[in-house]
Amino acid sequence: MKRSGLIAMIALAALPLVTTGLAVLFAMPDTVPLHIGANGVDRIGSKYEAFEMGFLMTGCCALFAVMYAFMDKLAAMGLVHGTDAHGGRTLLL
């Protein structure tokens, strides 16, 4: 995979963090329910706690993008069990 393709994939991986930031700045109220159980809302917190999930999603997307880009090398090292690089890429998608 070309370096420009990898950079584009990582830039797209940052999209959850960007959309979270826009939602926090313009759409969300100051306090939001963070957990809803059988008895109703269990926990209320700040809207800035939404960034935790944004960072988690961005990190996972960036990791998968790098794995997708280097699947040939991972398959050559034997880290993709029972398949070739194409099968590993299909599994990641």
Score class of each variant (00 low, 15 high):
K2A: 14
K2G: 14
R3H: 12
S4K: 11
S4W: 14
G5M: 03
G5F: 03
L6A: 04
L6V: 01
L6C: 05
L6P: 05
I7P: 02
M9L: 15
I10F: 10
A11D: 02
A11Q: 03
L12K: 04
L15W: 08
P16V: 00
P16E: 06
L17I: 07
L17N: 04
V18E: 01
V18H: 06
T20N: 13
G21E: 07
L22A: 15
A23C: 11
A23E: 12
V24P: 06
V24W: 07
F26M: 10
A27D: 13
M28R: 04
M28E: 06
P29E: 09
P29S: 12
P29Q: 10
P29T: 06
T31W: 00
V32S: 04
P33G: 10
P33N: 09
P33E: 06
L34W: 02
I36D: 00
I36S: 03
I36G: 04
I36V: 13
A38H: 00
A38Q: 06
A38I: 02
A38K: 07
N39V: 02
N39R: 03
G40E: 10
G40S: 12
G40Q: 09
V41T: 15
V41S: 09
V41W: 07
D42M: 08
R43M: 02
R43Y: 03
I44Y: 06
S46I: 03
S46K: 07
K47R: 15
Y48P: 01
E49D: 11
E49K: 09
E49N: 09
A50R: 04
A50C: 08
F51T: 02
E52H: 11
M53C: 06
M53V: 08
G54S: 04
G54C: 02
G54N: 05
L56R: 01
M57P: 01
M57V: 03
G59N: 11
G59L: 09
C60E: 09
C61N: 15
C61P: 06
L63A: 09
L63F: 12
A65W: 02
A65N: 00
A65T: 02
A65F: 06
A65C: 03
V66W: 02
V66P: 01
M67A: 14
Y68F: 14
M71Q: 10
M71V: 13
M71E: 10
D72M: 09
L74D: 11
L74I: 14
A76G: 01
A76Q: 08
G78T: 13
L79A: 15
L79E: 11
L79Q: 13
L79Y: 14
V80N: 10
G82D: 12
G82M: 07
T83A: 09
T83S: 10
D84Q: 12
D84S: 14
D84P: 11
A85E: 11
G87C: 02
G87A: 04
G88S: 05
T90K: 14
L91Y: 11
L92G: 07
L92Y: 00
L92M: 10
L93F: 07
L93E: 05
L93K: 10
